[in-house]
Design a binder for these strands. Structure first.
Length: 237
DNA sequence: AAAGGTCTCAACCGCCTCTGC
DNA sequence: TGCAGAGGCGGTTGAGACCTT
């Protein structure tokens, strides 16, 4: 049998959907035989998991999700599927693409590798605090309630003083959905960052996620959830 | 308007692990 | 215990969209 490759057609999607509706996920190598699709089992599995699953979330990666990705990556490295487990509706492929296109681009612009201490520091002390700041700003603007941001280092928890965060302009806050390092990167702000947060460990444990019940509920991002996931991840280790 | 460059993301590839025999 | 097949995962590619000049 000649195996088809390349982009999927609507007809192929329909066949795959019908197959999964009847047989459920799994046994992907049976798909071709049982559905008439001229695709490999791997191709079918990938198409379903990355594109056709009903719970797949589409659209831009939110600030909260960006924060999670940065934090989880600093914790687990390129273990995309593990990171994806903590972002309901997002696939490992999507997260991997985000990292390559957005994060690695930042490193390129800073003329350093993503694995260098310089870039990791910039991420910990500039990018992540700015993300937290913007998440807080947006949550305050919607709820009117003041919120606190708990930052946990490996040596304990601290509150981040907004005045210590890098300066930003209101226009950036209102118009930019995708925070970039070069939006706010200032080498001095890295070296000036307080030692109790820096100290080689940074914000590595700051993570966020709500409901752990299988991804059916929409994630609600707040400090409580950040703290909850933090504890969860700690237990996983 | 057109050409060239850049970005995005779906899809493939190859390797590794797991599972059943 | 070893083997084969299936599934899972991370790295990479390339087509098309988008942007810049």
């Amino acid at each position: 049998m000649d195996v088809r490759k390349g982009p999927w057609t609507e007809e192929e999607d329909s066949l795959l959907k019908a197959y999964v509706n009847i047989h459920g996920e799994g046994r992907w190598n049976s798909v071709a035989r049982l559905s008439g699709l001229r695709r490999t089992g791997k191709s079918c599995r990938l198409r379903w998991l990355n594109y056709m699953r009903p719970e797949i979330k589409r659209g831009n990666i939110s600030l909260e999700e960006q924060l999670l990705i940065l934090q989880l990556h600093s914790r687990w490295g390129n273990r995309w599927s593990k990171i994806a487990q903590h972002l309901p509706g997002r696939t490992d492929n999507e997260i991997k693409n985000y990292w390559r296109t957005r994060v690695q681009k930042q490193a390129k612009q800073l003329k350093c590798d993503v694995n260098t201490k310089q870039f990791k520091d910039a991420m910990r002390y500039v990018w992540i605090p700015r993300l937290i700041e913007r998440i807080r700003a947006s949550s305050q603007s919607t709820s009117g309630q003041p919120s606190t941001t708990m930052i946990t280092t490996e040596s304990g928890s601290v509150q981040v003083d907004p005045s210590l965060l890098p300066e930003s302009s209101d226009s950036q806050l209102s118009s930019v959905t995708d925070l970039t390092l070069t939006d706010c990167y200032n080498p001095q702000s890295v070296s000036n960052y307080p030692n109790n947060i820096g100290n080689g460990s940074g914000f590595e444990n700051v993570t966020a996620e709500a409901d752990d019940g299988g991804g059916e509920m929409e994630t609600v991002w707040n400090e409580e959830n950040i703290w909850f996931l933090q504890q969860q991840l700690h237990d996983e280790d």
